[in-house]
Each structure stands twice: as structure tokens, then as C-alpha cells.
Nucleic acid binder design. Sequence first.
DNA 1: CTGAAAGCGCTTACAG
DNA 2: CTGAAAGCGCTTACAG
Lengths: 340, 340
Amino acid sequence: MNKIYLKDIAKSLQVSKTAVSLVLNNKGDEHKISQETQKRIIDFANKHNYKANHLARGLSRGKSETIGLIIPNIADIFYAKIASIVEKKAKLLGYNVVFSSSNESPENESEQIRSMLNRQVDGLIIASTQKNQEEINHLLEINFPFILIDRYYPNIDTNFVIVDNHDGVKSVTQHLINLGKERIGFISIKPELDAIKQRLYGYHDALKANDIPLSKNYIKELNIEHYQQEIKGAIIDLITASKPVDAIVFSTHYLTASGLRELKVLKIKVPDEVAIVSFDELGAFDLVDPAITSIIQPVHEIGNDAVDILIDDIEKIGSVKEKKKIVKTGLMIRKSCGTK
Amino acid sequence: MNKIYLKDIAKSLQVSKTAVSLVLNNKGDEHKISQETQKRIIDFANKHNYKANHLARGLSRGKSETIGLIIPNIADIFYAKIASIVEKKAKLLGYNVVFSSSNESPENESEQIRSMLNRQVDGLIIASTQKNQEEINHLLEINFPFILIDRYYPNIDTNFVIVDNHDGVKSVTQHLINLGKERIGFISIKPELDAIKQRLYGYHDALKANDIPLSKNYIKELNIEHYQQEIKGAIIDLITASKPVDAIVFSTHYLTASGLRELKVLKIKVPDEVAIVSFDELGAFDLVDPAITSIIQPVHEIGNDAVDILIDDIEKIGSVKEKKKIVKTGLMIRKSCGTK
DNA sequence: CTGAAAGCGCTTACAG
DNA sequence: CTGAAAGCGCTTACAG
């Protein structure tokens, strides 16, 4: 069973390559090729398992039927879930996906965007480092279809699907307040990303809405590269303050995991001494001791909407109206935040 | 800044496309193109940010510089980690990666393999459903570079990197026995995969080595599609047996998570009443109550070796000798297995 | 209804 | 040292 090409079919069946190509691309009727010829071609193709070379087709059509997904890290369960949903949806619409992890490096990201363009992807889904203003503007300039997810550029006019970070943190903080917590700490990475900034503001606004004064000492912002070393100090600060915290909001799942580990080492009882809540979660947060109250990211919505919007752009269908979406988070209340 | 092509460079610089292509592919010296011409070409290309169209290059060279990764599910943290490592390593060697999730469906897998071939990937890394004997044989027949990871076909002669499942489970079971456990249950999915079979045998052999009789009642094999419903019954069976188990080995991370959830509902104390251990782990298994003793998969080794072997094959380098690897698991002892 | 031909953007033997 | 030309495997206007 040797590899078979378009010309082989044409030769065997004594028809032109044009006819074969047309029929196999479902344009037989359109070009009024006789039903009989069509059937012969299709049968022959099936029998010999003919499939067009995508490279050649892509080159010829100027379309690769591939979309690129650029994310910070595919090994992060959040992005892995997104990738899974994007893949499923894209496949449904006839596209493959190539992915690249930027590891939060703007240089990597920029290079990966360029590389994807060279590889002729038809569109790009990017969870950006948010430090590639120029690259994003460039995409806009050349009118290349792309959509930002998870993180966006507040002052660039692009399509995006992001999460309502502000609202998510505000409601979980409110929940803590409702449970009687009065001294709520906030542990985050440095707010270089707008998403992280919004989480901080959500925390601010919840306190403000309840007339709780904001205390700088209760807010800890760690370096993303060294959070594992720094979190211990942050937690000790919070629990040995003159007025120790009675709750902590962690702004990412890995901070929560790291923080809880530290609290256990320090033998602090959660939630009795300190209640905790997490933005986003890891695989077994429901089994953790105690099970962790988490803000849930609507990954299905993010992934599906992103693909819908992107492909609507690529194919210029125009059926998707809303191309800037801010989706709501969920809240999963478990034991770590305590009860009334 | 318009898109620039090879011919534009040639025209602007008054040289042939041949020269430009050669120089840009680092074959300038080889073809004795003057240093000056080379410099002019390179400078011009850099200045105008020229990058070759990969589709065209691929079509022409018969090589896409892309490898395909087919796995059961990218949202499974184990495969997400593998994907991350494969990506990093592949990029280092000049390859991009496209991925596809088979969702354990042999039909999907088979179709995805075909689709990847049409897309002209240069090689394939497959964590197979193990039900595509024909497809795998076909790859072998057409001499297409590929490597199996995680799961392999015991009676097909292919390259692979798998884990020593037998040894992993045997040692963790031995560990339980050393701690004085005598009635050890085993909860698994139905052993359609060789990997799962090996885990079962590891359990068998540990018992045998210690002269503990094997009891059919202690072994529960669930349907992979319905394990969430079936696991409850399995656990109840084990703990209400005439001689209830004092330990359970779970053969996958998701069974462990599910099982522990159930044990908590049933208010069984782990590890006091029943000790548990897990094959592989989820993100927060160290934080779970109790922290779960787990067999650790050497993901870095699997990912890196697979790429090394595959690319050695693709480029016919011949520097990688060992192309069938069985790598050892690690063991992370935590609280869930109890102590002496 | 159908076929010869040009074109997609590269690479690379080949001839000089 | 260099250039014209063929070729990779498709698609698709165009002419008949």
C-alpha cells in the first residue's frame, strides 16, 4: 500500500487532476461534474485511503486549518484544561492546534507568536504575559485573527475572553466577612498582570463596602519567581501581627497550596485560627485538609467562546456578535473558610 | 511593513533566489557564496524581518519540523506534564508540537494518527489506547518515525518509553506489608491496558513474596467510564468483607481521589482503619487529608527520552542506542499508608 | 462539463 | 561562484 497522490487518482481514472480535486473538496456539484464521475473518484479515493497533503493544500489555499495556542504553561492544570477544551472545539470546526508555553517570558512569547505566523497558523489564542504590547499591536496592524484569553491588554482594542477577577474576589471576601472575619489578609504575587490587580481591587472593594479599613500590613505581594521562599515570611507576618489575621485570601491556586503547606508546618489550625480561600483550584482541593473554598474559573466558557470568536474571525462569518467577553467566576464553598 | 518574500530579497539585492535561500539556510559557505553577498543578504533579511514560510519549506523539503503528540487527555495532569516536557525538549531541537487527545477512544486515536500523517508531521509520540494494533503496524510498515510512551504493545516491536508499573506497585505493596498490613485490597480499572495489568501483577507478586494468599474478593476492577459510580460499592465491599481490608492500593490517581472522597463520606479513618496508597498523584496530594503516599512517575525522563529517541529516528542520527526503555518509578511516602 | 496551466513560496540538483 | 529551472502536491481561475 504505497502513498497515493492526486495525480495517481487522475491517471488511474483517466480524468483531470482538477476534477479529482474539485470532487474531493465537495465542489463537484458546483462545477457540474457528472454524478458518475464523482462517484468513481470518491470510491477510488476511499478505497486507496487518499488524503490530501495538508502542507500543499495549505500553501495553495493560503490557509493551514491550524490555530496556535500560546499560554504561560501547559503543565498548569488551568491551562491544561483550557487546552483540552480548545482542542475539542477546534477539532469540531475542522482545525488542529499547536501550542507553545511562554513560561511567562515576554521574549519567548513574542518569538512564539512570530514562529506561529511563519508556520502559517490561521489564528492565535493567547494567554499573554501582558508585556508584549508591540507584538499585539503588530497582529492588529496586519489584521491577523487572534483572541486574548485569561489576560488582556486593558488599553488595546482586541477581542478577548477573560474572567471577572474583581467580582470573584469581592464575593469570596464578602463571604468571609459574612462569616464574621474581620482581619482578612491577602497573599498574592506582585500585580504585574491586570488580572492580579483586579483580584486585589476586589479585595479592597469588599472591605470598603463593609467599612473595614484597609491595612497595608495585611497585603503581601510576592515575587512570582520566588514565592515558594517568600510565602513563609508572608504568613508569619500575617499571623504574628499585633492584630493577627483571622482569614487569608490567596490570589492563585499555587499560592494557596504553598500557603497551606506552610500553615501546616506552623501548626496553625485552618479554619479555626485562620480561614483561607483560594482563587482557582488544583486537582484535589476538595480532598485537602481542610477542603478549600475556591473561586472556580469557568474554563469551558473561556475555551469555547475563545474558539468561537477566533474562528468567526478567521472565516469572516460574522455570526458572533460579542467579541469582548468578561465571564463570571463560580464559588465553591468548602470547609477552609469556616462557618458561622 | 508588508510581508516580504524570498523573491523580494532577491530582487532588491540583485541576486538569485537560490543565493538567498542558500545563505539563509546556512549553506552559503558550503556553496562558496562570497562573504560580502552573504552579509548583504543576511542584513537585509534581518532588517525586514524575513522568515521563510514553513508550509512552502516543508512541502519542498518533505519535512515539517513538527512532531505530533497523541495522548488520552491533555487535561489529565500527568499528560499535561508530559506535554510540557515534550514541548520544551522538542523546541530545543527545532521542532514544534501539535497535540491531540484520544479520550481513550481507539477510533479517535486511529483517525488522529492518520490526520497527523496528512499534516506531514515528521514523527509521532503516542500514549496509545492499546487497541490500534493495525494502525501501529501500518506506521511500522511505512517506516514512519514514532515512539510509544506510557503504554506500549507488548507484542509489537516498536520503540517505547514506559514505566516499570510492576515494580512500582510491588514495592509500595511491600511497604504496606512491612508496616504490618495483612489484608490489602486493590482497586483498579479493568486491566485492558498492559500498564494496568502490570500494576495488578505487581500487587500479586508482592503478596506472593510474603506468602500472603491472594483473595479475589480483595481485588476490584471498575469500568473506566463508570468508576465514579462503581467505586462506592467497591469500597463498601472491601470494608465490610468478613475479613475487612486494612489497606487499599489504588492503581491510578483519579481512583485514589475518588476513593478517598468515598472513604470520607463513609467516615472511615485513613490510615487508622484503612491505609491507602496511590499510583501516580494529583496536584495537591501532599496537602490532602491525610497526605497520600504515592508512586511517582518520572515524567521528565519519559518526556525527554521520548523526544530524544524520536528525533534521533527522524534525523537518522543514530546516536541514541537504547530505544526501548522501561524507567523506574519513585515512591513518596506520606501519611496515608500509616506507620509501624 | 472538462482539461491544461499557472500559482502558492520555498529548496536544490544542474549547468555554466 | 551564480542563475534559470524544475519540483514539492495541491487548488482554482480560465478557456474551450
